[in-house]
């Protein structure tokens, strides 16, 4: 995967904007609920990433997301 398709930096920026705090230390292995991100904020983060990238992720892709990496890879999959 090229850097162009590594969405971790974008996740950090968008999450920081949505939850109004720093997400600099987050890795792909971080568990989203451990970061204190609730399901409402997560959907908002998804929505903002979709808008920025001009993509639509089907809802069924969004169930069973546990880690930041799970979320990033579901978005990355839509970019190729």
């Amino acid at each position: 995967m090229t850097d162009k398709h590594d969405l971790l930096p974008m996740f950090k920026t968008v999450a920081a904007r949505v939850d109004k705090r720093s997400f600099d230390d987050v890795t792909r292995a971080s568990v989203i609920t451990d970061l204190g991100v609730d399901s409402l904020s997560m959907m908002q983060i998804v929505g903002e990433m979709e808008t920025e990238l001009s993509i639509q992720i089907p809802d069924e892709d969004l169930v069973e997301i546990v880690t930041v990496g799970d979320l990033c890879s579901r978005v990355e999959r839509r970019l190729v």
Binding site: S39, L40, S41, M43, Q44, V46, G47, D59, L62
Partner: peptide, 14 residues
């Protein structure tokens, strides 16, 4: 159908 991507809409539906 679609899950809202907007916090307020999610809160209202909840």
């Amino acid at each position: 159908n679609k899950i809202p991507r907007i916090k307020k809409d999610l809160e209202d539906i909840y």
